[in-house]
Nucleic acid binder design. Structure first.
Lengths: 328, 328
DNA sequence: AGCAGGGTCTAGCACGTGCTAGTGGCACGT
DNA sequence: ACGTGCCACTAGCACGTGCTAGACCCTGCT
């Protein structure tokens, strides 16, 4: 920076002033400073900058590298943060790097607030580490903690799926669940409630699953072994639905002619033309937006009480659902 | 840090010394310092730390948020960097954030070296920005630049696939290419060369594609429209292969009974039990390792001439390939 | 007693930036 | 001639840490 100043023949303070866009420099000087900086290859030092102003302007984001839905959220986080005058620092959780390390890195960077994506989220163990830093968990709520949370109403999403099927005339509707996954309980509950509300409690069938394609494959074989196929299946998520679809195809069961299938997530997978899966969308853009919004409210708006944002999912009807087969 | 020092009743310098693990403090004092730090919730400030030592210890990584293969690389980058005493800073390229911004952020952090993943990589436009900072591009080589590069020998990978099919007895082998994608040219060339080497130049059939599932779907319909199906197809990548597989299934063509299919990438997709795709692996772990290695050689080893690492791909034989059908 | 040497600790500057308080010059009005 | 106000610019401290040079105490040897 001193180099640039010397080159232009002004003080270092003026260069600083120009670079942060403050008032008090003539238009001509500004241009000369920028030109000189480009010649020197000068770029302001973020570390020194955030050391001096007490604020770093960083929002730390913890996510799981291998999860495609997390990737969608990360994608949406950047514009949401930028729009509110903040920058994003990423920290990935991987097989060799746990949340403790990821959060530690972010705090070392003096992130002003934390957005933690993932079903394991901020465990109680991490809470004291974060003390004093606003944080929002995405996809789950941690009752014992002071953190905000943003999540989708999973029960409602599954209810929408069931309602859609019942409206099309289905009565025999099965569910493949997500086992012990965090959101699985809510989805299972939504299925049970919806069936009961339609007077179909006799038809309730829950098959065990774990959100993997393989669990869809297993469920397909299990269903075909029974004497009577359901006319529709609500899978715990899209991956499970794709495994199910593929196996039904191989087993000679027509979709949606004989069996209708609904997924959950509206992932890239579901949108592929040859899959064309009816599914329930969790809006990544809206989720990211709400999470960032919550953090900024605490930082700039002075909010202190915890907030729990529950987003409405949306049913996306595509080609894997239709009216039920007439003969059983 | 002064708080911690006051709490223990020692100087600030000693606390600093304890925290960076330097010699010259008694075991007892160390413990008292750590205890006091935990009570205060103290954590060293990364910004101030890297301001003082002239080195930041950061390796900046630019990747595309929406690409699953990039995610695999990111996953592998962390341990590779840690092992060599470096930390990783991530910067994502998204729809709303181009490489210029991503690289700018990383340089602002005073990253000591840059790893840029992605087919558009460091364009000429970015080269002057990076001047002076060691950089490695992954997946492509930029001839005009001083950067290192790490990539997989795509032509060789496709040759291995063709060799495998020919050894199984196939002669009529088609290829669905990746259009104008960066690696598509090499894969197409590998296919042509391998066919020629086996004396099968008459059988060369290249169908247009673009690495998407849809292009596999289109290719399946195109092939079935012809009077004679090939006995095997080498798809440009796994996604294309999956689209192809699914459409063949729907069209009533048995795989691998009537047609064998080979993909490329060994993505998660290929490993699914119901897909079980024979494919060519690009080793993400090895790629990340080589890229980090190249950067560290420049930083610590003093290497200055550019280096181009070309990795050997590996054929993974699974369930979608077998001997050709006997009757045409 | 005096000195050397090692172990433990401390004072204080430097890193690159932001910002407060202030300087100097010019135009204007009285 | 002098005060007033504005514009363009500058001097120098502060941010939280690392590190050099040195201080202090204790032990053991001459």
């Amino acid at each position: 920076m001193a180099d640039v100043a010397a080159r232009v023949g002004v003080s270092r303070a003026l260069v600083s002033l120009v670079f942060r866009g403050a008032e008090g420099a003539s238009q001509e000087t500004r241009e000369r400073v920028f030109r000189a900086a480009a010649e020197c290859g000068y770029q302001p030092d973020t570390a020194a900058r955030m050391l001096r102003r007490r604020r770093s302007g960083f929002l730390g984001v913890v996510y799981t590298a291998s999860d495609p839905f997390h990737a969608e959220l990360v994608e949406a986080v950047y514009p949401a943060a930028e729009q509110r005058g903040y920058n994003v620092v990423l920290s990935a959780v991987t097989a060799a790097r746990d949340e403790r390390e990821a959060v530690g890195d972010l705090l070392g960077f003096r992130s002003e607030a934390l957005m933690v994506i993932g079903h394991r989220a901020l465990s109680e163990e991490l809470a004291p580490l974060v003390a004093g830093t606003p944080a929002v968990t995405v996809g789950a709520r941690l009752p014992g903690t002071p953190f905000d949370s943003v999540r989708t109403n999973d029960a409602q999403g599954v209810r929408q799926a069931v309602d859609h099927l019942v409206e099309s005339g289905h009565r025999s509707i099965a569910h493949i669940d997500g086992g012990s996954m965090l959101s699985a309980a809510a989805r299972r509950r939504g299925y049970r409630e919806a069936m009961r509300r339609h007077g179909l409690q006799e038809e309730i069938t829950v098959l065990p699953g774990d959100y993997s394609e393989d669990s869809g494959v297993r469920a397909a074989h299990e269903l075909c072994r029974r004497d009577r196929l359901p006319t529709a299946v609500v899978a715990g998520n899209d991956r499970c639905a794709v495994g199910l679809l593929d196996s039904l195809l191989r087993l000679g069961v027509d979709v949606p002619g004989e069996v209708s299938v609904v997924g959950y997530d509206d992932s890239q997978l579901a949108r592929l033309s040859h899959v064309d899966l009816t599914t329930v969308r969790q809006d990544a853009g809206q989720t990211a937006e709400s999470a960032i919004q919550a953090l900024v409210e605490r930082l700039d708006g002075g909010r202190t009480e915890a907030k729990d944002v529950v987003l409405r999912p949306e049913l996306i009807v595509r080609g894997t659902t239709g009216p039920p087969r007439t003969a059983s």
